[in-house]
Nucleic acid binder design. Structure first.
Lengths: 332, 332
DNA sequence: TTGAAAGCGCTACCAT
DNA sequence: ATGGTAGCGCTTTCAA
């Protein structure tokens, strides 16, 4: 049905070589030929077959994006950002959502390899080191050290933890606890906890730690605290809701800090103090690192330095808030 | 570097044909041969090249997923759901985020065609009818009629609107307004507005309509209402925040309804009354419709009947809330 | 039960 | 400046 190089060549009265050349704007072609070919292409509504092109040992220009899911607002934003930038660089993104399922991840990786992806960007980490090590394809990881030799783009989570803790202290919080949600989102970094401890500047004192599940079961536990550090913005909002329900006044006698600072959560809850990860910068770093690895497959690529984070401590008055920005594109 | 059919054949001491046959579990092969080949494949860590397979006029098993973005919680959930189901059916998903940019969408569609996608699922609609009509590939649309002959999976938005309005009335809201956010998320369906009007059951009265932007500029406008219908859950939460800031008691003297009912928003704000779209069912319908079209390319596929929605009117006590579910997989 | 050989649509090398 | 042709890795006749 769809026309091929040969069809175009026949119609233009030239060889397939010539057609191939005008497609790839080769030099040394007469204007007349170029015009003829272009015309034939248009007439036949010709679409070059990218898969066939990818078969000359050339690159497929596919990038595999492996992540647990895309419903997490931060990952969604990262995904958007990566896709957009990769597209402008001529790459197509194949998504592979793995949840926390090791077998699913393994299958997905297999499919990506089978489809000759030029490289993989992964924020999943359900497999053993050796699995990742064996993958014969350039790969960059986000936030997790997958295996030795695989570059990883990280954020400065120590500073993140420290700033959050310092913020709570400055606001006047006396009893601070770290809330964990190990079941669903294990704290990725030891560094962050170190930062929190240092930020609290309470030498010799252990950091109070509570499980979210426990807190949900025994809401009275909340009364012991006036400052909470959540593992992410979503849990932070939950905690705010719980505190409000127990009669606490958010940002007056009770403070919560989040983590990630996605635009969505920022809009939904402008009051939320949180550690903001620079998504665009992370996307750029991930891509740059991957492309470098693609360009130099047998060179060992260093992981870039941890990306700085910033802390957004908002007590913005409602009247000063910005209107919604165009990320609300669809509502249905 | 990576080994090919030929390599495997050589190593196993058989022809490429035979290897191809064991890969595709052809009948009539001696067990001995099968074992030999399997062994060779393992030894060489052989990965069939999916792109080469897609070149025999066989299908590529690529599906293009075209959407404005993936940061919208509902679209994120739909994306997750589609990817997961398509993967189990042996399809790979290439994402194409278009925002509201017609040129970007056009380029993306071109790339998808060039990569021989078997079909396209689209929730973007930035181009003219003819553009979509011309696409020589099976395509299903979500929520928008792209062009005649292109099947579209819709929800029963009339009922959605009607249930939201009825809810507000039942709660005792006297002054109800529909809030629009035309700039960022134009109301997709006339039906929904019809439903709202019918649900309010105020014959002869026009429906009050406010622009979100205006409301943000003049928060005092809120005082005129005690019931708001938001275009989506995100705006609904914003409105709740604004109302709370003006001293209204949510769900006591002020009610807001949302739209979409994504799990994320459900967790973040269990109090939010909203119209819930059945994501899984929508994903299934989209896939089924697309696959049918792929199976019968020249047959005209009918759009399925609008999918029913349900209204979640929550006044769930905090103590009765369920714990977070495992969609919070990553926090970083 | 197995193999040889002809493509799939394209690029690249070698000619002219 | 242009064309012939040999593959890329695989599937698929047609033969044996």
């Amino acid at each position: 049905m769809t026309s091929t190089l040969k069809d175009v060549a026949k119609r233009a009265g030239v060889s397939v070589t010539t057609v191939s050349r005008v497609i790839n704007n080769y030099h040394s072609l007469s204007d007349k030929t170029i015009r003829k070919v272009r015309l034939a292409m248009r007439e036949l509504d010709y679409q070059p077959n990218a898969l066939a092109r990818a078969m000359q040992g050339k690159s497929s220009h596919f990038i595999g994006l492996v992540l647990p899911n895309v419903t997490n607002p931060f990952l969604a934003e990262l995904t958007n950002c990566l896709e957009e930038r990769l597209f402008t660089k001529g790459y197509k993104v194949i998504i592979a959502t793995t949840a926390t399922d090791d077998q699913l991840e393994q299958e997905h990786l297999g499919v990506l390899l089978a489809n000759q992806v030029d490289g993989i960007i992964s924020s999943s980490h359900n497999l053993d080191n050796e699995h990742y090590q064996r993958l014969a394809v350039p790969i960059v990881s986000f936030a997790h050290q997958l295996a030795e030799g695989i570059p990883v783009v990280t954020v400065d989570s120590y500073s993140g933890g420290r700033m959050a803790a310092a913020y709570l202290r400055e606001q006047g919080a006396k009893e601070v606890a770290l809330v964990l949600d190990e079941a669903h989102s294990p704290m990725s970094s030891r560094c962050r906890i170190d930062g929190i401890v240092d930020g609290l500047a309470r030498r010799g004192n252990a950091l109070a730690v509570i499980e979210l599940d426990e807190l949900i079961r025994k809401p009275l536990l909340l009364n012991q605290y006036d400052g909470l550090i959540a593992p992410n913005d979503e849990v932070a909002v939950q905690l705010q809701g719980m505190a409000r329900a127990s009669g606490r006044k958010i940002n007056e006698d009770f403070w919560v800090t989040g983590y990630n600072g996605s635009r969505l959560m920022q809009r939904l809850n402008p009051e939320l103090a949180t550690v903001v990860l620079p998504v665009q910068e992370l996307a750029d770093k991930l891509i740059a690192t991957l492309l470098e690895q693609i360009a130099h497959p047998d060179q060992v690529i260093e992981s870039p330095a941890p990306v700085p984070v910033r802390f957004r401590a908002t007590n913005v008055k409602r009247s000063e808030r910005k209107p919604l920005s165009p990320f609300y594109v669809a509502n249905y």
